[in-house]
Computed example of a mutant assay.
Amino acid sequence: MPDPRGAAFPFRIDEQTGGIAMTEGPEKIRDDLRVLLGTRLGERPMLRDFGTRIHALAHEPDDDVTADLLRKQAHEAVVRWERRVVVTRARVDRAREGELHLVLDYVHSDRPVAAQMIIPLV
């Protein structure tokens, strides 16, 4: 299976070619995970089930229940929509008071590449 290739996220122009910046392989998968986790459920008109409810938890109390909901919703979205990775661990860390980080440890399903993604949730 060839490496996935597509437009980089966030969208930008490649300074060297003047065309659309592209990414491929592990970086493309990482970009696609950012898109998935940054999309509100129902935001995409033609794909209403794509995304997460993470944004709906922004004003909830900073407690263990909210952290567990964040972790679970992110994990479920990745399992459903991103078949190129297997999540080995998902957790929410408290960086400072009122600042949470979603930490996803994953491996690529088609090769022995492990990666970690840390997403600030403020």
Rank of each mutant, 00 (worst) to 15 (best):
L41W: 05
A77V: 05
E15W: 01
P45W: 07
A114E: 12
W81S: 06
P2N: 15
R30W: 03
V107W: 00
L102C: 14
W81A: 09
V65W: 09
H59W: 14
A74L: 08
L69G: 01
A90C: 08
D31M: 07
G51K: 01
R12E: 13
I119Q: 11
P26K: 09
K28A: 04
R80G: 03
V107G: 04
A115C: 06
R94Q: 11
M1F: 05
V86Y: 00
E82D: 11
R30L: 05
M1A: 10
E82Q: 12
Q116W: 01
D64I: 04
R80V: 05
G19V: 02
R40V: 10
M117D: 14
I13H: 08
V35Y: 01
R71I: 13
R96V: 04
E76W: 00
M46R: 13
L121E: 13
V35Q: 03
V65M: 11
D110F: 02
R89D: 15
E43K: 04
V122H: 15
V113C: 05
L104P: 14
V107I: 08
R48H: 00
P112Q: 05
P4L: 13
M22Y: 13
E82S: 06
L102E: 12
T39L: 04
H101K: 13
R53C: 12
D63H: 11
T66L: 07
I118L: 09
